[in-house]
Design a protein around this nucleic acid. Structure first.
Length: 263
DNA sequence: ATGTCGATACTTTATCGA
């Protein structure tokens, strides 16, 4: 079973690129972030025509997450628990029976948090605290679990072209990185790092200043696996090609392959 | 040093968020 995550930076702007990538990569489950669309505006037919079921948690103009799945959803949960006053659409979770077993998958769009001296940074840290609490609850279920998405956190020096240039950024602050470590330390596995821990496996290149051409990237899109999922991890990949297409997203797809549970 | 893109609205240019 192939599970992918991609911050597409606008579903309408990616109405050609996303189906093209789906046909080429053939993932079973896809977690999307920054759809920048309300539920009713999401072009579900584009993906239903390719054999996917669609679950959306949208918002007008900004944010918004979705999950595509070849197999129907057993259950869909919209919104990260823990704060009824948080109206930003940044989390959707689904239970899917596929490949002879059940898997729980979350599509995460973690707050950016910039600028650090604004209220956006404490919002990011509070959101991460809630995510840690929810992940602890989910891990207690002892299921195959994949927490996938745009974490807006650069975990280490090997995940950024120029660490010094990012020292003041919310994505690279010690508080952000400490919470990401705390999340992983609950017992989750960073799928990409588990298969290849080399530096420079970037998933995002800014639109500005020729970042793509200079390979001035960062690794901020992650797939974190519960032990029951990590034990089935067969491989991962970062598809860089779509970053070079016409009108690209600034992020590229990240995917992992899980073996069937009876193999 | 600068450089971009997507969505929105008191819209055809400016603003916001990233």
């Amino acid at each position: 079973m192939k599970i992918a995550t991609w911050n597409i930076n606008g579903i309408k702007a990616r109405a050609e690129a996303l189906p093209a990538w789906l046909k080429a990569a053939a993932p079973d489950i896809v977690c999307l972030q920054e759809i920048k669309s309300v539920d009713e505006g999401f072009p579900s037919a584009l993906f239903e025509d390719l054999g996917y079921n669609v679950a959306v948690h949208g918002q007008k103009g900004f944010n918004g997450v979705a999950i595509l799945s070849r197999t129907p959803f057993d259950e869909v949960i919209r919104g990260l628990p823990g704060d009824k006053n948080d109206l930003q659409a940044r989390y959707i979770e689904a239970v899917i029976s596929s490949g002879g077993g059940v898997v729980r998958v979350a599509s995460i769009y973690l707050p950016n948090g910039n600028p650090v001296d604004s209220d956006k940074f404490p919002y990011k840290l509070g959101w991460m605290d809630r995510l840690i609490g929810h992940a602890r609850d989910l891990l207690a279920l002892e299921e195959p679990l994949v927490l996938a998405g745009d974490y807006n956190v650069i975990p280490g020096n090997g995940d950024v072209h120029d660490p010094a240039a990012w020292t003041g950024d919310a994505l690279f602050q010690p508080e952000s990185r400490a919470r990401f470590r705390a999340l992983v330390n609950l017992g989750l596995t960073d799928a990409v790092m588990a298969c290849d821990d080399s530096a420079g496996q970037y998933t995002f290149w800014d639109y500005q200043a020729g970042a793509w051409q200079k390979n001035n990237g960062i690794r901020i899109d992650h797939m974190l696996l519960s032990p029951q999922a990590a034990d089935r991890l067969a491989g991962t990949g970062i598809d860089r090609e779509p970053r070079g297409w016409e009108r690209p997203s600034d992020h590229v797809p990240v995917w992992c392959e899980l073996t069937d549970p009876d193999q």
